[in-house]
C-alpha cells in the first residue's frame, strides 16, 4: 500500500531520521512512538505527501506521491493533523462534511451519500447528538472526536493520524482505538503517532520506534518490549501481561 524508501527527514538546522524504510500493508495497524521532537509529525507529513522528504521517496500503490493529483491522493489517504490552524465558525455537521471535500465536485448539491457518511462517522465517534451544535462551543475532547469523525467521513484507504488520542478521556481513548482497530480489520491501513505507550501493545500489530539516531520498525510482538521502550524514552518501563494483551507502563 504505502512504501517509504530510504527516507531522510530534516527540519531547518536538524536531521531527524536517516534512511528510514517502511512498508505498510492493508489490514495493518501501526503505532509510531518516540520522544518529543523525534520527528514523528515530520514523518507523518512526509508519508501523507504534505511535505517533501530531504531524501528518499514515498510511493502509494507503487506510484510516487507527487505523481498524484491532490484530490486523488486525498481520496486514498486521510490525515488527522495535530491541530487546526484556524477557528471554525460553522456547525459540527458542516465541519464533518469538509471531510467529504475530495469526493464532491464543484458546487453540486450535497449527496445523500455524503450526509450519510458524515452522520455515521459522528455516530461512530459518539457525537451523533451534536450535529447542529456550533463547533466553536465544543470542549477540546469533543472537538477531537469531531475531527476524527471528519477523517472517517473522508473514508480513505490509508489513515495517518497524529496523536489521535489527545484531549480524550480514558473511555473515549478506548473507543477511538477500537474504531482504528476495526478499520484495520476491514482491510484499511492505519498508522498513528501516539504518546499513550500503554495502549501500543494492546491495539497495534506493528510499531515504529523513532529514536534520536536510530529507528526500528516491524511487528509489535518483535519490536515492543520493556527494554526497547526504555531505550526509546530513557525512562524505566515494565510490561504487564493479561489475557487480553500486553500493556507497557513506566516503572516509577
Amino acid at each position: 500500500m504505502l512504501r517509504a524508501d530510504r527516507l531522510t527527514l530534516a527540519v531547518p538546522g536538524r536531521t531527524l531520521c536517516r534512511e528510514l524504510s517502511l512498508a505498510l500493508q492493508p489490514g495493518q495497524c501501526w503505532c509510531v512512538l518516540g520522544r518529543n521532537g523525534a520527528g514523528k509529525t515530520t514523518l507523518l507529513h512526509a508519508l501523507a505527501g504534505l511535505s517533501s522528504p530531504a531524501a528518499g521517496s514515498v510511493c502509494l500503490d507503487d506510484r510516487p506521491l507527487d505523481a498524484f493529483p491532490r484530490r486523488d491522493l486525498a481520496k486514498k489517504t486521510g490525515v488527522l493533523l495535530q491541530d487546526d490552524a484556524q477557528p471554525f465558525w460553522g456547525t459540527v455537521m458542516e465541519y464533518v462534511l469538509l471531510g467529504r471535500y475530495p469526493h464532491r465536485h464543484g458546487l453540486a448539491r450535497l449527496h445523500a451519500e455524503d450526509e450519510a457518511a458524515a452522520k455515521s462517522a459522528l455516530a461512530a465517534m459518539g457525537m451523533g447528538d451534536a450535529i447542529s451544535r456550533a463547533f466553536s462551543t465544543l470542549s477540546g475532547g469533543e472537538r477531537q472526536r469531531v475531527r476524527l469523525a471528519a477523517l472517517l467521513a473522508q473514508s480513505p484507504e490509508l489513515y495517518l493520524l497524529d496523536e489521535p488520542l489527545q484531549h480524550l478521556d480514558l473511555a473515549h481513548q478506548v473507543e477511538t482505538l477500537n474504531v482504528l482497530r476495526h478499520l484495520a480489520d476491514q482491510g484499511k491501513t492505519v498508522l498513528a503517532v501516539l504518546h499513550e505507550t500503554a495502549w501500543a501493545g494492546r491495539f497495534f500489530d506493528h510499531a515504529l520506534l523513532l529514536g534520536e539516531d536510530w529507528h526500528e520498525a516491524g511487528p509489535a510482538a518483535d519490536i515492543l518490549g520493556a527494554a526497547s521502550l526504555e531505550r526509546l524514552y530513557r525512562c524505566p518501563m515494565e510490561e504487564v501481561t493479561t489475557e487480553r494483551g500486553r500493556y507497557f507502563i513506566p516503572r516509577v
Binding site: 504534505l50 486523488d72 490552524a85 484556524q86 471554525f88 469538509l98 471531510g99 471535500y101 475530495p102 458546487l107
Partner: peptide, 23 residues
C-alpha cells in the same frame, strides 16, 4: 463562488486544505 468549497477547507489552514485535496 466556484471556489467556495475549497475556501471552506482553506479557512482551516493550508496543511488541512492540502490533506483534503486542494491544490
Amino acid at each position: 463562488s466556484w471556489q467556495a468549497r475549497a475556501l471552506d477547507v482553506l479557512a482551516l489552514g493550508e496543511l488541512k486544505a492540502k490533506s483534503l485535496g486542494v491544490a
